[in-house]
């Protein structure tokens, strides 16, 4: 049924694209659907990127942000997936959240519902411990969690998100066992950690950058040191092959006319080399890592497989 709808949509889009003169895309404002409230990380990314995309799309292009908050971005991304694939609706996309939601609940979209434009932000996970405890190195932490399975409490934001997958990876790599305490968001988890109510926390680097003196940051789950906090060692340096993070980017509905897709991809691709953009993003605590098109889709698919694998062995709800 869904496939049929997609097919018809696709055919319709092709007919449409054949008919319309596309040389002058965009000829009206492009709407960016943001699945979160104004002022959140995803919203700030969209608003910061918008003027740069306008610049690269060429004269007269205008991007308008529309906040469709609710259900951790589900309502917004569902609207994006169902929009006309005419290039005038694009949406923000969060990984691994958007893919994990297709697994743990019914969703009206899947990996193939989108044209993948660009992933812009990659916010790597970090493992932090409370200054009030004595687990101030990765070694001590893992030793403790291995010797006393479940004795180390881990504060993080909700289950089925990047923090959770990070912990699963850590457990698989080390064989240690932790007790998960899922707070409603990163800030409460971080606060509980500072107060010593939980022993360890999994957060993202942007969330701890302002708190480096209040927490022990044991490592960053990225291949290279983050320009964001160059003093912090990666896990790789410490002999642990642990890579994970929270990603944010832009997608459009599947079936975008080829020339419009090319034009958008080109515009988003230029973000990578734009120093002004990088600076603006750094100012709002968003570590940039631009991945476009097919590569972005492959990234999404791999995260889907990861989530699916986790779900099959240890379902989180």
């Amino acid at each position: 049924m869904l496939k049929l709808i997609q097919k018809t949509a696709l055919v319709g889009a092709i007919i449409l694209s054949a008919g319309a003169a596309l040389a002058d895309y965009p000829e009206k404002p492009i709407q960016i659907i943001v699945g979160f409230d104004a002022g959140g990380g995803t919203d700030v990314m969209a608003r910061t990127a918008a003027p740069f995309i306008e610049k690269y799309l060429g004269e007269g292009a205008s991007l308008v942000v529309k906040n469709v908050p609710g259900a951790s971005g589900q309502i917004g991304i569902t609207e994006t997936a169902g929009a006309d694939p005419d290039g005038y609706t694009i949406g923000t996309f969060n990984l691994p959240g958007m893919m994990a939601r297709t697994i743990d609940r019914k969703s009206a979209y899947d990996v193939d519902s989108f044209t993948y434009l660009a992933n812009v932000v990659n916010d790597p996970n970090v493992i932090v411990t409370s200054k009030r405890g004595d687990l101030d190195t990765l070694e001590k932490l893992i030793a403790e969690a291995t010797a006393n399975p479940g004795a180390v409490t881990v504060g993080m934001s909700s289950l089925g998100g990047d923090d959770h997958f990070m912990l699963i990876k850590l457990q698989q790599l080390t064989g240690a066992e932790f007790t998960i305490v899922p707070f409603s968001g990163s800030a409460p988890a971080r606060t509980a950690l500072m107060g010593g109510h939980v022993a360890m926390g999994i957060l993202n680097i942007s969330e701890v950058a302002e708190f480096q003196e209040e927490l022990n940051i044991l490592g960053v789950a990225q291949a290279e040191r983050s320009p964001f906090a160059p003093d912090l060692p990666t896990f790789k340096e410490q002999g642990l092959d642990l890579l994970n993070g929270s990603m944010r980017g832009f997608v459009a509905p599947a079936g975008l006319p080829a020339d419009i897709e090319a034009k958008l991809l080109d515009a988003f691709g230029q973000l990578a080399g734009d120093e002004e953009f990088q600076a603006a993003m750094a100012a709002t605590a968003n570590p940039v890592e631009v991945v476009t098109g097919a590569e972005f889709k492959a990234l999404t698919a791999s995260l889907y497989d990861l989530a699916k694998g986790v779900w099959e062995t240890t379902p989180w709800n």
Binding site: D37, G39, D43, V44
Partner: peptide, 24 residues
């Protein structure tokens, strides 16, 4: 700490972040 005390403060926190002011 980044944890708002009221619903209004939560929305205002968004207003701060939009200007690049990270709580902490």
């Amino acid at each position: 700490l980044g944890i708002p005390g009221t619903a209004v403060a939560a929305v205002m926190l968004g207003g701060l972040m939009i200007h690049g002011l990270q709580p902490g």
